[in-house]
Design a protein around this nucleic acid. Structure first.
Lengths: 171, 171
DNA sequence: GCGAAACCTTTGACATTTGAAATATCGGTT
DNA sequence: AACCGATATTTCAAATGTCAAAGGTTTCGC
């Protein structure tokens, strides 16, 4: 951390209140972040309590659930936005639990394909059902039309962000 | 992870496409999550590259920046939504970097108050300025009015979620 | 003022996270 | 058939994350 020039910034802009003085983009960002964190924490808590699973495990299984033939680890990494190194450990733990299995296709030995075991599919189906109910519950006070329109509007944010970054990513 | 009943779930509802079959709440949630993760990753990358800081460190400093008298660690924990145990280490590292200092008020020796050092305030001011620019950049393609209206609409989601959870939290 | 309940922070055991470096394999060139 | 660049996964160190239990302190009821 280096020596930086404070005078370049109008302190007041950032200083007060619940971000009242921040620029709209920053305010929206802080709200997105806190909302997501809030709901994540709750979902994680419930996943843990009712299924002994973590959120990343749920995400990963969700991807495998809709690709019965399985997915390569790199593909899993992209889809879940989890780094490669992390996928390794995640899949290892799920394999140890008997929910996922790993296999190397005959053609290319660099590749590892992960797929759900029948047990894994069963467990995930139950988790997914609960997950949907939890979300309807958590968003229960919100007008259903707003939910739908938010989906596409947040999509605009996402598209813009994707446009303006060094790397890339998808849905 | 126990043996669960798959028949309880209509597989098709979850199975296909980019969540086309999911309920609106679930779709919105997945989009919020992926959008937030996308932007977080980019912000983290830039914070690291330009300031050698992490996102949790930035969050923590942001809270201290607008409370010149400092904040108790428990208060910091609530505001940043970071667990107590984690605040300890976070503040320790920032203190080691000379950006934050800890002191125990005379009145109550249970308490530790963290505040920014002058150096910390200087560094944060520069980070905050850059942060705002990055966000304007990332959301640059979006109609400014939409940004503002999203802020309040996402607020409705947040309020609803807050209403429907076991614990509590604030803005 | 004494003891119990309440409060604030730290500690400890572990799981997860990232980013970068290391490994392993493939495909094509020569 | 050895090599090079591109791919795919794993490993590693450091930071962050949770949860639960332990440590001091304060406050309150009596």
């Amino acid at each position: 951390m280096a020596d930086l020039d404070a005078e370049a910034v109008d302190i007041e802009i950032i200083a007060h209140g619940p971000n009242i003085r921040s620029k709209p983009e920053t305010r929206l960002w802080l709200r997105l972040l806190s909302t997501t964190k809030l709901i994540s924490t709750e979902i994680r808590k419930r996943l843990r309590a009712e299924f002994g699973a973590t959120l990343p495990q749920f995400d990963l299984m969700a991807q495998l659930f809709r690709e019965k033939e399985g997915l390569r680890l790199g593909e899993l990494s992209k889809r879940t936005m989890v780094t490669n190194g992390n996928i390794t450990g995640l899949v290892e733990r799920l394999e140890a639990d008997g929910l996922v299995l790993r296999e190397t296709p005959t053609g290319d030995r660099r590749v590892t394909v992960a797929k759900l075991t029948p047990e894994g599919a069963k467990v995930f189906a139950a988790m997914a059902a609960a997950h949907e109910i939890w979300l309807r519950d958590l968003m229960g006070d919100v007008d259903p039309q707003l939910i739908t329109s938010l989906w596409s509007q947040v999509g605009e944010i996402k598209a813009s962000a994707t446009n303006h970054m060094t790397g890339t990513a998808e849905d």
